Simulated assay, not measured.
Amino acid sequence: MKVEPLAVEHELVERVLRIKQTLRGFVVDETPVCATTDPEAWHPEHPSGLSTPPYKAEKQAMALCQDCPLIDFCLIQELREVTAVEHVHGVRGGVRQAERQALYLTVVKEGLL
């Protein structure tokens, strides 16, 4: 399935721009939720697509992310580190794989990071 970039006005793109402004000089001094959870929880075997709602395993991982003090840092860090859309897997920063893949394409296309 081909992934297309999101519109620049999409809420995830706006979230990235907000986070980018607030994380300048951010120091990680807290433990992320994922460090205390089974790593398999973040990588559902069958991820959903953009045209379908998140599957149960994705919803569970996304819910765990909501309590994490590093949720925003996690999302931005992945977008900065990943080198290709094919390397975006699982749930990270409270966002499922399909949405982050589309977000990554937008960030690259628009030069947002």
Rank of each mutant, 00 (worst) to 15 (best):
T22L: 08
Q21G: 15
G94M: 00
T83L: 11
E78Y: 03
A98Q: 08
E40D: 05
L64W: 04
H87R: 07
E86N: 11
T106P: 10
T106C: 13
A7G: 08
P44R: 04
L70T: 01
T22W: 01
L79R: 03
V3A: 04
A98D: 08
L113Y: 12
V108E: 08
Q21S: 07
C34N: 13
I71K: 03
K2N: 11
L17W: 07
R15K: 02
E45F: 01
C68W: 07
E14F: 06
L105V: 06
K56G: 14
D29I: 06
V82E: 00
A98N: 04
D29P: 05
P53R: 14
L112I: 15
G94F: 02
I71Y: 02
V28R: 10
A41Q: 15
R96P: 10
L23I: 09
I76A: 14
Q21R: 14
V91K: 07
S48R: 14
I71G: 00
E30V: 03
V107S: 11
Q60V: 06
E4R: 14
E110F: 01
C68M: 04
A98K: 10
E58V: 10
Y104M: 02
K59D: 08
F26T: 13
T37N: 10
H10C: 08
T31C: 01
D72T: 03
F26C: 07
A35D: 08
Q101N: 05
G49A: 15
Q21D: 12
L64Y: 11
K56T: 15
V27R: 12
V107G: 08
I19Y: 02
L64H: 06
Q101F: 01
A102G: 10
H10I: 05
Q60F: 08
G93D: 00
E81L: 07
Q66A: 11
L17H: 07
